[in-house]
């Protein structure tokens, strides 16, 4: 299951200097809330993507701590101001400390 987890990122790859661009992200993850019970009536242990982090050229942009109230396959969007060409690096980390990263290049004309 965990092998299937793949982050998807949508952001414009060309921007003007100083432009604030929107970044839309989605990672396929069950986001098991820890509230559900299996067929035997036992609680299914919590397993969610609990941390999200975005940097641009190594400089921090934003980060988020997520709670079980965030839906399955968490969709997150945010903004970043691009002053120079660079790489947007996103990292998702789940309760098992497993993490996924994605890198997207943005070119400033």
């Amino acid at each position: 299951m965990s092998e299937d987890i793949k982050p998807r990122v949508r952001v414009q790859t060309k921007a003007k200097k100083g432009e604030v661009v929107e970044v839309k992200t989605l990672v396929t993850h069950p986001m098991e809330s820890g509230q559900r019970k299996n067929a035997d009536g036992k609680l299914i242990p919590r397993l969610i993507v609990s941390a999200f982090d975005a940097t641009y050229n190594g400089k921090p942009v934003m980060s988020a701590k997520l709670e079980p109230a965030v839906s399955t396959n968490p969709y997150l969007s945010f903004f970043v101001r691009v002053d120079e060409s660079g790489t947007l690096k996103l990292t998702w980390t789940d309760d098992n400390k497993q993490s996924w990263t994605s890198e997207t290049k943005i070119e400033v004309a």
């Binding site: 604030v20 661009v21 839309k24 809330s33 641009y56 400089k59 921090p60 942009v61 934003m62 980060s63 988020a64 701590k65 997520l66 709670e67 079980p68 109230a69 965030v70 839906s71 968490p74 969709y75 997150l76 969007s77 945010f78 903004f79 970043v80 101001r81």
Partner: peptide, 21 residues
Amino acid sequence: GVASYSFMPLAGRAEVQLRVR
């Protein structure tokens, strides 16, 4: 709790979108 974000000025705009239960 739902989510807790932290921003740097580099974010350009403090606006987020997400889907919640």
